[in-house]
Design a protein around this nucleic acid. Sequence first.
DNA 1: GAGGATTGATGAATCGATTCAATCACGACT
DNA 2: AGTCGTGATTGAATCGATTCATCAATCCTC
Lengths: 333, 333
Amino acid sequence: MPDRGNASLRDVAELAGVSVGTVSHVLNHPERVSEALREKVTAAITELNFVRSGAARQLRQGHSNMVGLVVFDIGNPFYTDAARAIEDTLAASDLALVISSSDAEPHREARVLRTLIEQQVRGVIITPSEGTAALLPMLRERGIPVVLLDSPGDIEGYASVGVDDVAGGAMAVRHLLDRGHRLIAMITGPMSVRQARQRLRGARQAITEAGLDPEKILVPVETEAFTANAGEAAMSLLLERREVPTATFAANDVMMIGAMRSLRRQGVRIPAEMALVGYDDIMVASELITPLSSVHQPMAELGRTAAELLLDPDADERHVVFQPNLVVRASSR
Amino acid sequence: MPDRGNASLRDVAELAGVSVGTVSHVLNHPERVSEALREKVTAAITELNFVRSGAARQLRQGHSNMVGLVVFDIGNPFYTDAARAIEDTLAASDLALVISSSDAEPHREARVLRTLIEQQVRGVIITPSEGTAALLPMLRERGIPVVLLDSPGDIEGYASVGVDDVAGGAMAVRHLLDRGHRLIAMITGPMSVRQARQRLRGARQAITEAGLDPEKILVPVETEAFTANAGEAAMSLLLERREVPTATFAANDVMMIGAMRSLRRQGVRIPAEMALVGYDDIMVASELITPLSSVHQPMAELGRTAAELLLDPDADERHVVFQPNLVVRASSR
DNA sequence: GAGGATTGATGAATCGATTCAATCACGACT
DNA sequence: AGTCGTGATTGAATCGATTCATCAATCCTC
């Protein structure tokens, strides 16, 4: 057995009877090498099963061919959809994607970013948490481009992509207004979360724009978490009101699933007695007993754009905001 | 402003007034350096904001501090749960995780593995697809440890971790038998998929073990895909039978959600007229109108063990198989 | 046919951290 | 006082791909 698997560029050169410079040219600038030599070199490469050392390459070039993606939680389907799109876009430029999750822990986030700097990544795409702003200068100092994901202009001085949560909230409520509802509940989730606040703002805005009074039309119910149980409790509360709303908008589909449980138990018909619109358009939204209308976010486009911004040298501080779109299903029809 | 962010180990040495060797020792073998110098060096490191070059380090050491994880699809929640556990386990050994998805495309998988080899990763954890077996020798040749994920001994000669799908199928059906059901449908999914075959085998086995005849008890229905629509169609078919089963086991929760749609439309009561058990225990299983019993897989343990096997030098060809567990909810109670 | 231009190939210098053999400083012991 | 030993520090060699100045060869043009 030939001693395969550890060949260096020098070994290839020796076998092919050329200089190391030529082998390197075959790999990086094939057009500069005559066909005869090119063939000899490629033959030697296959023969030796040669794979070039990324370390040596990076050391010389000053940067690697990797881009870092740092998300809160890899488990979140939105981020994975975006990640997929990022990966595909980068692949076209021969860049590999390195995914890490920060869990929104500053300590962990710092460690992850440090590793990325050590690897001299070509750029970083990150969904910022509370502590992120303090860490970004580390990257900036080293000339590593940064794009903020799902964070429309949260932090000054960096390019960003995001989805317009105000518009999303507005389009959900506008749809319900259009269908004649005049007392609309909103299950907001925790108001400490930016997305919750902005979706609520959008909801109010839609009502104002229709020439109506948000105070009279909208019944917001804050919950402690974005869970199904929280949604169920919120809906139970709403059904006990003197004047029960005829429609409900939830800032998240999972809470709405809980709310639907409560409705089913009380025998409230959907959408006849209670129309529903959720947010996120999760995979099962269309698979529920009553398929759920929901605000869909273009995560793939978001990812693609984030990657494009990262690669664009003069995108320094551009902010791209995508518009969500409403998917209407039986729950509000 | 000091020119921060590009300092090399030599710059640190200069500022601290010591040799490069000493700085390196401070980083890697602090105990060999006197306290006085150690402090001077650490001061210089902070002053210059020094982060060592991973490339140079790797080049010299012959390997990086990264481990590659290659999955079918990052979007799949199972894999992300496992990924999280892998990441945590590796972090304890100061190893970073690089996640990539192969989409089960051999072409893409080959490219991903090539990148990992270039990076001289310390090991690779991979969920193998059809073409994987042919690619693994590339890693073996280079002495890169490999652990197969979710693939109990599929490929000879490599360590692996997996969940016992036969046992999973068996425990679902055993539960239904225990509750007195004697005509049980199984929505299998495509039989070309190993998981589908093994879960069916488990189902048969449970019936045999109970001293009954699988041919008389079990009604398998193959579908073309693991989707909700496929599940719905399968259930409609079952309901048209002369003798309608009193229980259904689906090889996947999403198909079961479709099946439940069909049942609801026909007014079949769950579990009184039809008991249900799914597989995967997806997040919404507990959030459905009728909470769904489902076979749960210990993905976190799977991930942790995969990482441990990877780091264990004498785990060369060990196979670890986990047992799934049945979560009983209202749909079969 | 000579000079100039073009194309192809070469190999030494380079990137930055690690490591080990060599040197140094200082105290202890004979 | 001199020698030995111990522990701390040094610095040069090393890993492997890239690049650029240099050299060689071939082709055009007048």
